[in-house]
Design a protein around this nucleic acid. Structure first.
Lengths: 192, 192
DNA sequence: ACCTGAACACCGTTCAAGT
DNA sequence: ACCTGAACACCGTTCAAGT
């Protein structure tokens, strides 16, 4: 098993990331958790940034599978879309550090990341076009609609993580509710 | 001028933050830029985190004034709302590091932060209620609508900063366009 | 009251070896 | 090919003084 150490390092980094954010992912602790020396990671990754990129890549691939599973279950296109966005915000609030890591400039993005993102984006566009054809979503540029839906899910998740969702009194709004509000609005706008 | 050094430190921290994120805000460089020793900041702030909180507070106050100015210009409530959200995403993409700092868990949030956020939120709710009364926005819980609008603006800005907005080919969507898409949809849903 | 310089523990990274 | 231990520069923070 040539790549076993590499996988152990990525798993250790993910665990430390969950426990205390990127600052808690010290190479020394990664090595300790993985059972190697504090600079064994340098034999598998150029630096700490690339180790974190590997964690992000693993997470994005898993998340892509989740969305694919929801799509495989079938149903009305608009219901699939809503289920996907609900799953997305649920994942984000359950693993805030992984969510924040996955988004956040992967400039020269290791290809793997770009691939996972582009296939997910393509699936989404297909669903939107189908939903529009079925009259479940308003007409207009599908890319604009995709931007609207993804941005809303992303923003609701990020605001929930930051604690900016229940601003006023007792309104303990959760991000899934906001996703629902968007889809209610879209449905209403569709059958104008 | 008793507080002059404090202001210099906050300004220096903001400058370093813009240039390279929180990691670039080293106490040593802050001191150098402000013309004091590398641990003079400890006479004004308990630690680096509180110094950054002061930067966030300054930024949030300024941003609150911006929104207030837009409201003071008058016009249809829904147009004021859209202008505010456009200004918000414009600010976020122009100063990504300040934007990311301002949102990001200010748990025991120095009061100052909480105050600025709650007045901004109250102004927003007022506008939404007025817009609904004028038939410019769909009916329903105003807090839900506020969550939808703020989450969308936040998400569009964050995705633009992360470079996740022009996913596919040449579609160079910008966050202000996405804000417009939301308001078009809301308008259409209002006059169902 | 505000500031400085030395010192400490910690971290990312590099290097010379080890098998 | 993969790993280790020592070493270096850097950073946040503390402490004992200085004015």
């Amino acid at each position: 098993m040539a790549t076993q150490t590499r996988d152990l390092l990525v798993a250790a980094a993910a665990k430390l990331l969950d426990s205390g954010g990127p600052a808690a992912v010290t190479l020394r602790d990664v090595g300790k958790v993985a059972g190697v020396s504090h600079n064994a990671p340098y034999k598998h990754f150029a630096n700490k940034e690339e180790l974190l990129a590997a964690v992000a890549s693993r997470e994005l691939t898993r998340q892509g599978k989740n969305l694919g599973d929801i799509g495989a279950r079938g149903g009305r296109p608009v219901d699939q879309l809503r289920a996907m966005m609900r799953g997305y915000v649920r994942w984000a609030t359950a693993h805030p550090e992984r969510f924040k890591l996955t988004f956040g400039r992967w400039d020269r993005g290791t290809d793997e990341l770009a691939d996972a993102a582009s296939t997910a984006s393509a699936n989404l566009s297909d669903l939107i076009v189908k939903a529009q054809a079925a009259g479940e979503l308003p007409e207009g540029n599908p890319d604009h609609l995709a931007g609207l839906i993804l941005s809303l899910a992303h923003g609701a998740a990020d605001r929930a993580i930051g604690g900016h969702l229940s601003a006023k009194g007792k309104g303990k709004t959760n991000p899934e509710d906001i996703v629902d509000v968007l889809f209610v609005t879209l449905t209403r706008a569709a059958k104008r």
